[in-house]
């Protein structure tokens, strides 16, 4: 009985880790969105593009950080819980 409960907990853990990993997809969408919009803007006005690369990377970093958080949750579920 106890072993079954433990296995159930293990299952929940892995399912939870998998669900948490979905969050990375959102980060991927966000990063793609930023990069795509930057490219669209840069093609419209190429002369302004170099001055905005810093903002591009900062934006990508912010978007990516949230994905990394969900990845971290997945890792914590896998290895630390």
């Amino acid at each position: 009985m106890e072993a079954e409960v433990a296995q159930l907990a293990l299952m929940g853990k892995y399912i939870g880790a998998g669900l948490a990993a979905i969050g990375l997809g959102g980060a991927g969408i966000g990063v793609g969105n930023i990069a795509g919009n930057f490219l669209a803007g840069a093609l419209r006005n190429p002369s302004a593009a170099p001055s905005q690369t810093a903002n591009l990377f900062v934006g990508i970093a912010f978007a990516e950080a949230l994905g990394i958080f969900s990845f971290l949750i997945a890792l914590l579920l896998m290895f630390a819980v």
Partner: peptide, 16 residues
Amino acid sequence: VSHSIRLAGNLMAGHA
């Protein structure tokens, strides 16, 4: 938090 987890998380994720 985000400043540090971003760096550690990116590297940890990539290497893993």
